[in-house]
Nucleic acid binder design. Structure first.
Lengths: 202, 202
DNA sequence: GTATGTTCTTAACCTAGATCAATTTTTTAC
DNA sequence: GTAAAAAATTGATCTAGGTTAAGAACATAC
């Protein structure tokens, strides 16, 4: 346990994690007591790398506070393709699933506290309680749906439409993510995003 | 059972299905005898719609023969975003997962035979044998990885690079999919794909 | 506070791929 | 087989967004 956290804050963080998990895996109090032993609380400072390219993702985490950026480095250029905000999952899924080196980086965009479930813990859980595979299944199902919608948006919307829809549905992106990363997420250059924003102000 | 299929052909199709399933869910002969009762064999002719927009996907299918095209209709334009070939899964996943109306169409590009597992069958299977959630989990995990790679390619490669990589890694696309659908899959117009192909021939 | 380095914006120009239109090739229907 | 329809190609032109370069607005460090 991280000694920089008070006992109370620590419990609070775990309770937040339990709440997020609830949709995937409702647990009785007794079950939770066992389950929460699995969590590792991890703290990062702004700009820290939570995961590097080439590293294997060992944790399926829940963002307790802060937010993270997921990006890939291709031909010398960073492409941000995902962010995780408070009370969302954070994970380099394909690396985690396959337990092979990640193609992606994950960076803390702010001071970040993560509640992390180690792969080995989940592995044991699946083996010991087969019904807990349902947790893994529904979690990745939800993430799958997210990716599919994003792909459709990249295929069918103009940059300007993507920006407008994001503003409307998830304004938290605007509040927490620097524009240069947001531009990358929308698959345009910062200069273009700037022009899009200017046009929309009129 | 489809009476247009001989008893032998029918068994052959199911064995092919078993083989594909094996990676996700290895079954003993006895287990398989139970499991295969769940399959429904469905036949389609070229151009038939296997699933319409607005319909809920009731089946997780395996393509025994033929191939299918998955597309979305946006602003009057078809966008092909996936194909299923022989011995691959075929499903409108997000509709299947959520059991809500599909945003997509699935069309038979050829004469098609599918071995289909009804949602209700899988539901019962998960309930009765909790460990079978592992099947659902790993299947959607594999599909997730596929979608992620495609997204990265859409973000980082030029149309020409996408075409070249597809040619190299999955030439079956070239052999089985009309160029106009392939163009859409690569996110360019047929005219542009034509020019890309011409350039590469030199 | 001021200095230094980022981030964001603006403007001028450029390019990959879209659009429009016409022609050739292939497929389908009879 | 032949006619009609659909798919693929080619050329001319257009445009959303990229590139380059400069300045303005914020941050961060001291």
């Amino acid at each position: 346990m991280d000694k920089t956290l008070s006992e109370d804050a620590y419990e609070g963080h775990l309770n937040a994690a339990r709440e997020l998990l609830y949709d995937y895996l409702p647990l009785t109090d007794e079950q939770w007591e066992v389950f929460k032993q699995g969590f590792k609380i991890r703290k990062y400072r702004k700009g820290d790398f939570i995961l590097n390219e080439g590293e294997t993702e060992r944790f399926l985490s829940i963002v307790i506070t802060g937010c993270t950026r997921h990006f890939i480095l291709v031909k010398g250029e960073e492409k941000s393709f995902d962010f995780s905000f408070q009370h969302e999952f954070n994970c380099s899924y394909s690396s985690f699933i396959q337990q092979n080196p990640s193609n992606f980086y994950i960076e803390a965009l702010d001071e970040c506290i993560l509640a992390s479930l180690p792969y080995t813990f989940l592995e044991q859980l699946y083996a010991q309680y087969p019904e807990s595979n349902k947790f893994g299944r529904t979690a990745v199902e939800q993430y799958y749906i997210w990716r599919e919608q994003r792909e459709i948006s990249l295929l069918t919307d103009s940059a300007s439409e993507r920006y407008e829809k994001l503003m409307e549905k998830y304004p938290v992106y605007l509040e927490q993510v620097p524009l240069k990363y947001l531009a990358s997420y929308l698959n345009v250059k910062p200069e273009s995003l700037s022009r899009i924003r200017k046009k929309l102000m009129k």
